Simulated assay, not measured.
Amino acid sequence: MLDDFFLRAMLAGLGLALVAGPLGSFVVWRRMAYFGDSTAHAAILGVALSLAFNFSIYAGTLTVALAMALLVTALVSRGQAMDTVLGVLAHSALAFGLVAISFVPSARVDLNAYLFGDILTVGRGDLALIWLGALAVLALLIWRWQNLLTATLNEELAMAAGIDPRIERLLLSVALAVVVALSIRIVGSLLISAMLIIPAAAARSLAGTPERMAANASLIACFSVMLGLGASLHLDTPAGPSIVAVAAVFFAIFFVFRRP
Rank of each mutant, 00 (worst) to 15 (best):
L127D: 07
L157Q: 14
G21D: 06
N54K: 13
M68N: 10
F26W: 11
L135M: 09
L171R: 09
A40N: 04
I198S: 03
V109Q: 06
I44S: 01
M213C: 04
S77E: 12
D236G: 10
G21P: 02
I57W: 12
G230V: 03
F116M: 00
L190G: 00
Y114V: 00
A69C: 04
T73S: 15
A194V: 04
I186V: 14
L98Q: 03
G230N: 10
N54H: 15
D164N: 15
L45K: 08
R30L: 11
D37V: 10
L176D: 02
A12H: 02
R166M: 02
R31V: 04
T150C: 12
N216K: 12
M1W: 05
F250H: 09
L127K: 12
N154I: 09
L120G: 03
A151M: 12
A245T: 10
A175Y: 04
S77R: 15
S102P: 01
G188Q: 07
L11H: 11
V137C: 01
I243Y: 13
I130P: 04
L135Y: 07
G46N: 05
L141S: 01
L135R: 07
A20F: 15
D4N: 14
S77W: 12
I101L: 09
A194K: 09
N112K: 13
I184L: 00
L7N: 11
V137A: 02
P210T: 01
F255R: 14
W143S: 06
P105K: 02
L62Q: 00
L89E: 01
D3Y: 10
A201Q: 01
